[in-house]
Amino acid sequence: MDQALQHLVNGTVLGGTYALLGIGLTLIFGVMRVVNFTHGELYAFGAYMTYAFVSLLGVNFFAALALATLCGVALGALIELVLLRSMRKADIDSVMLVMIGASLVLQNGEMWAWGGVAKLVPNPFNGSPLVFGPVSVLPLRLFVLVVSAALLLGFWLMLDRTRAGVAMRATFQDPETAALMGVRIGWVNTATFAIGSGLAAAAGALLGPVFMVSPTMGDLVGLKAFAIVILGGLGSLPGATLGGFALGFVEEYAGGYLSTEYRDAFGFLLIILVLALKPQGLVPAKERIG
């Protein structure tokens, strides 16, 4: 029983991080129909920015998280303006190739700038775990979970309750009509990509101190993010959240009770099962975002 409870806590923490990874990717696909292969690299970029602000510039840890996220927003806006804006009418395959190229450039840029050796990001939290009966969790992990939940909620409110959110959803439903109604499509796309990138950078900024920061840290994360989005339903924010937690729990319990050797395989087995039974994913939204 104690082990099951610990797995429950571990799965919740892992699921929260997976959900955060998924929402930025699903937003960009939902609004722009762009498969963002730079998602993993933007995650690594956020982690490196946190490392740079904390370890090299001596910035306060919490301020560094915010600054790293803003850097991710800025980089995302730059990618949209330089690479994607001129390709708005291009087919999805061409855009995918451009994004794969951008991902390679970003990863090699990180290797060039930081070297291949992984780095630890110092954090102000106590290194000893908080103990609740039979279960334990690090204060840093709890902080990440709480901030992830706050980001998910804030992001949902932005989409549902603000004019910017309405503009994003309108653009997805019918870009031409949205433009006739006064929505500036170009800026909606830039803002969407920037916000999605900021969410990826925020995930990296939060998880970099939990794990370690390395140029290839985005590879596995990018793959998992795609798995979460497909599991939850492409373009669905609740789907990405649910998919993240589903994947986290399956990996944790299957790894703990069945086989750690095939831990990742169980996650992908879940995806195959869901897609076989429900090809649109767990939450096939009528309206792809929100």
Binding site: H7, V13, F211, M212, G255, G256, T260, D264
Partner: peptide, 18 residues
């Protein structure tokens, strides 16, 4: 208990070993 070379979250393995 085993882990893939890229794995970063080892909680399941460590909980099992515990």
């Amino acid at each position: 208990e085993t882990m893939t070379p890229e794995a970063t979250d080892l909680a399941a393995q460590l909980t099992a070993l515990k």
